[in-house]
Every structure is written in C-alpha cells, then in structure tokens.
Design a binder for these strands. Sequence first.
DNA 1: GTACTTAGTTTAGACGCTAACCAAACTAAA
DNA 2: TTTAGTTTGGTTAGCGTCTAAACTAAGTAC
Lengths: 401, 401
Amino acid sequence: MKTTRADPQPADFTDVRATNLAVVLRHLRANGPSSRASIAASTGLNKATVSSLTGHLIEQRLLRETGLSGNRIGRPGTALALDGSAYAAIGLQVAADRLTALALDFAGDQLLLWHRALALPGDPAGAAGRSVSAIAALAQRAASRVRQQGRQVLGITVAVPGLVEEGGTVRLSPPLGWSDLDLRGLLSGSLRQPDLDIAVANQASLAALAELRHNGDPRLDLTYVSGASGVEAGIVADGRLLHGARGFTGQIGRFTLGPAGAPTLADLAGIEPLVRRALPGSDPESHTDLAPAVEEVAIRARTGDPATLAALRDTGGHLGQGLALLANLVNPEIIVLGDHYAALAEWILPAAEAELARNTLAPAAGGARLTTSALGLHAAALGGAVSHLDRIDTGSLPARG
Amino acid sequence: MKTTRADPQPADFTDVRATNLAVVLRHLRANGPSSRASIAASTGLNKATVSSLTGHLIEQRLLRETGLSGNRIGRPGTALALDGSAYAAIGLQVAADRLTALALDFAGDQLLLWHRALALPGDPAGAAGRSVSAIAALAQRAASRVRQQGRQVLGITVAVPGLVEEGGTVRLSPPLGWSDLDLRGLLSGSLRQPDLDIAVANQASLAALAELRHNGDPRLDLTYVSGASGVEAGIVADGRLLHGARGFTGQIGRFTLGPAGAPTLADLAGIEPLVRRALPGSDPESHTDLAPAVEEVAIRARTGDPATLAALRDTGGHLGQGLALLANLVNPEIIVLGDHYAALAEWILPAAEAELARNTLAPAAGGARLTTSALGLHAAALGGAVSHLDRIDTGSLPARG
DNA sequence: GTACTTAGTTTAGACGCTAACCAAACTAAA
DNA sequence: TTTAGTTTGGTTAGCGTCTAAACTAAGTAC
C-alpha cells in the first residue's frame, strides 16, 4: 500500500480495510480456491484478519465456501473461492465492421459473447447516431440477460479504436469516422440507469488489460499491439494502464521519420495495407470487414505463395521497427501481438523479431519478448469487462444492494 | 492511499501513518509554511491528527516551528515549515566530459554545486575504473561536506546516460563507453557506509523528476528530452517515473523507420550531429565537451548565419517528429526540452512545434505543450538529489538516528 | 483412546483516526 | 477596561482495524 496520488489524499482505516480486502481477492484470483489459513500464510495477514475479511466478502457475495480441502493431516480447511453468481461485468467492442458484447461473472467466467454486424454508412453524422443506438441496444440486451440470471451489473465498458478521453468522449476515431463524440454521455442517456457504471476506453488499452489478466502475473509490464484499426498499442506499466494526460496513449501508427508525406508505420505495417498488397485483385470496399481478408491471406501464405509471403515478411519487418520503438521507450517485459497480427503471427513473427532485436539498444538484457495473443478478435471486449472486475480486485467493492 | 503493487501487499496502521505524514509533508512542500489548523483545513485531516503528525515530524527534525502567523482575527497560528537543517541529499551527474555534484537540504535549498572535468581515456576498461574512482571521490567529498554542516545524508543518486537497471547496474552507456558495470556496487564498496542509500539511474529520468518538482504540480504528466548524450527522454506518468521492466525507458534516439542503416533520430536530431554540421571546420575530437560547441552554434545563430540556422531548423524538425512519437505514445501534458536543446530552443522550437503538431493525431485536443527547461545542464544531478527528498515526501521517513 | 496437527474463532491489546470539548490568544466593539 | 467573538492547538473518549495469543474444532497417527 503506497501513496499514488501526488495530490495530498489522506488515509484512514477504511483504506487499510480496502487494501486488505483487495489482497484477499487477488490472492484467490491468482491462486484459485484456498482456505483461510493458507490465505493468511501466503499473504502475511493475520488469521483473525483473514477471517474478518473473508466474512465481509462472503456477506457481499464476492466469495463463497466450496467444501472442505482436507488434503493432509490435521483439521481440513474450508475452501474459499470467488463467487461468480451475484455480479457480472459487460464489455462492448466497437469496430468498423461489427459490434461485440461480452459478459463475465465475478469469477471471470464468460456468460455471453454476442456479435452483431455494424455497417457504418457513408454519412459520418448519421453513422455515429445509428451506431450509438446499436451500441446502446446491445448493451441494454446484455444487461437484461445477466440481470435475468439474478446478477447485478457492475458496469459496462465500451472499447473503441482511436483517441478516447477519460471522461468517455471519443475525441477522434478515424476507423469509425467519429470525432468529439460524447459516447459515454449518449449511452448513459439511452440506458437511463444513473447508478450504472458506464465507461469508454481505447480498445488496445482494454485488450492489454485482458491480456494481463490472461497472463496471470499482475506485475508484468506488458504491451498489446492491435492491428484491427490502424496500429495501436495498449501499454501496462507498473501494473496499471498508461493513461497519459488525456488518455491518448499508444498511437503508434502515426510513427514516421522523414519529410512530410513519408509513409507512417500504419502504412508500412498495418493490416489493411497488407491485405491490399496481398490480395491485389479483390475489391477494397469488401475489406471493411478485415477478418475474412486476413483469413484469405493466411490461406495463401499456407500454400507458399511468394508474393504473399514477401508482403507478410515486409509487414513483419516494419512492425518490428515499431515494436523496437515501443521497447526502447517503455521497455515492456513482453509485447503481445494481438487480433489480426496474431492470426498471421506464423509469418510475421520472424521478421518482426529480427527487426526488434536489431533496433533495440540492448536486445539481450532489455529486449522485449514477443508473444502472440490467444484471445482472438474480442480481446478488447473482454478487457472492458475485466476492467470492472479489476476495480473490485483493487478494493472498490460494489455498493451494497 | 491506493494499492499500487499488484502483488498482494497487506496494509496496516503504519501505512496509514506513513501516508498521512506524506500528506503533511507534501502540503508544506507545495504551499510553503502553514499552521496546523490550515493544514487540517486544506488536507481534510483532523486537527488532532495533524497535531500528532506534525509532532512526529518535528521530532524527526523534518519540520520546525517558524514563529507566529497571526494574519487575521483570532488566535494566531504557529507556522510550520520544512526543516532543512538536519538532512541533505546528494545527486551526481556523469557526462562524457564532466562530473557534477549537487546537494540539497531537506527544504530543497541547494547546499553545493561542484563541477569536475572527467576525461574518458581511450581504453574503455581503464576509463570505467578511473571514472568510478573519480565518482566515488566526489561523492565522498560531497558527503563529508554536508556532514560537516551537521546534516545526515539521506542518500546519493548518480545520474548516467544510457540503460541503467534498477539495481544500479549500467547495462549499456554508449556515451561513456560502459557496459555491464555494477556502478552501485562499486560505489558502495568504495564508500564503505553500508547504511547509506546509493542509487544509480538514467539521467533523463532524473532530470524529469527535477523538472516535475520545479514545475510545482506533482500530478503533471511530463516528459523531459535530453540531448546531452544521444537523445533520451525521461517520462513521468501518473506522478511517477516510467520505469519499464528493467528501467530501460525513454531511449528515443534509436528511433528509425526504413531499411537497415537508415538514419536514426539521434543522427537526425542529436546535438552532436548538429554541432558537426554547424561547425564543420573544427576538430570533432574537441567536441567531447559539447557545451562550448553549443555556445558557439548559438553565437553563429544570433549573427544570422544561414547555414547554422538551416541546421538548427532541420534539427528542430526532426526532433519534432521524435516528440510527436512521444506525444502519440505516452501523451504527456508538457514536453520539456532540456540541456543543450534548451540552450538552442530559440531556433529549434518553431520547427519542432510545427512537426510535433503535424504528426500528432489530435493536436488541438491532445497535443503536448512544448516548453524549455530552466534548470540548465545539471538538471539530472538535481533530480538525483530530489529523488531522495521525494522518497521522504511519499512517507518513507529516514531511519531514526 | 490418546497424542498430534492443522483450521478457524475468540479475546485482549495496541495503534491511529475522529469528534467533541476546552483552554489559550488574539481582535472587535461596547 | 471589559466582554463577546473567533481561531488555534491540545486533550479526551470512542471507534475501527490489525496483531498476538489463547482456545475450540476437527481431522490423522498410532
């Protein structure tokens, strides 16, 4: 427990309590069901304190007893586990082509995963209006579903590509054609549930959260790289998302070095340019939904098509230069190639790794490990839900009700 | 008080106490001398708590009463101020050409500022050995001096360009010709004071700390850009230094995009290349001490020499591209041009600002404000000392003694 | 059945914050 | 000069939370 806010922020016993409740929750999240005694032993908390804390959490329906764990000599312990039955968190993911909704219970189990086509019409103004309605409707449906199951909704977070302010305003999203759109406010208005926690955040950042939780080690410095819309990175440092002054972090796609008009990293290492180059004959309009095109590229690569392989190598090389930039600037322990990059990792990784090593100052000592995401195309939706679980795991228990 | 460590870390009363001691210290640091009552009023702490906290701090000689502050109606308060007389912190800065030592008392007042020439010989191994001896000697002298004044030394931090691990090993420092040098260990051995807190850190990061304190707002997202050795950045996010997995952050100079051998940002926007270009006739060997050369460039610029001005514009433009990268990746509120860049800011800034704006995604909404450092060439030494004051300001009081 | 081992609760105590009260020290006004 | 009002700073009682130690509970080992 250490002061993070630089602004003076006094502490009292409730903070101690919150911190220790969080310690118990995170221990169970990381290590699975445990007895009170083993929690006390491995966290360093006193047995009496653990009893008090777990009693509090059971009362809040965040924990439940799951039978005995009599593994050895002595009195068997009663195993405690996260209780998923009382709460749920919802994540939505907005892409140019489709909408994804995902719900997790508090234990982290997936309750639903819905996809819905989303056609962004030509008219940007109309597009935003209609898209917002679709998002609100899907959020409403997902919330209703989990409420039918008797769960309280902890919150809804919407993942969006581009620049999203912490207040929930989408300042600029080229892939969606949005700018200065108060998405959080619009959704709050549509859903008419003032006590519901609604948030909007960048999709790569949320995907990084999901990846962090998937990895298991919450202290890992991890960066997630998304190619779903431009090239974006989500950066976790010191166990927390890098937010920046306004929340506009990880915009790696604009990276360029040279005269005006020189190609950017998004031009050189983006998925869309890759598809255009690897599938030259096809209609570019049909690539608004990238997933099938990426699949087609993978099929050609598997057949050994030289032009496709060259394009992939080239993309990988340039991507590696971008990753080197990340590695040199924020020095993550691992960089996770996400969404479409993960689908093409087999052919992209070698060149990316080579360029990453070539452009990292001390590749052996400080270079980032490159890995591939296993979370698929809805990592950001998952991250949106995870963000609410994380809030509880850091001590902000849900309001009594 | 909020949990930062993701690893379960239980809290107890001592954490509450430490947090609230820190609240009082930071309030006084930010607002100057105040009475107990006004501290209570503006921090939200109870009057009784403030009395207890300040009593504790006075006993530790971190605070002292400085007379009455009877400004208005009612009983006048006794003003409390930071007490500089009992403790001092030392920062050392290692550059290719010279060594700087600086000491601050706990109130933040400068106690000494020493410079010493440091000639790095050709033989790297010998260079490290001799340099380390010189550093140790200077540190020893500075420590002795402040001890003669009756002050306890809180710690010594050495600022070094390049990759420095958190344990104090310099993994790679091209400007110094060092690699895998356990500088902290060597200094600890030389100084033979096992209870003395010795640290080694990257110079740009420490300069960023100094700049943050100089600015006054400890919640500012700030990035410091150093041109003293290559191009390095120190990044403060969420009020804390960005450390990364191993401490290798801010290495912006390696930034490149293109085939192998393409110029890096350090080639295009570095101070050394600028000097070589602006002062073509002079002996490059004589530029190991950059400061006079930079002064010469400034003189030529002031006379309006077209070639010099063009070189400066060019450097500024490329630097702006690098800053845009920083702005897009970590979204700082302000970017501070440090050391030699600050000396040449008059000519570099316009082009840098233009390129920064051109390459930032949403310049109006999220663009970083470019400013110039006022701390000169020893900002990192200052930051080294400041880092120890910061540790106390965040609640780690010095050991009783 | 007795001894041993481990789990979880109870109890006593310490710590540090808060709220309420009180004395001190000053100004303002009668 | 007195009296009322205001603000400071300290004191006391009470409360919440953690810790240590004792105690009860529930199993295994022999």
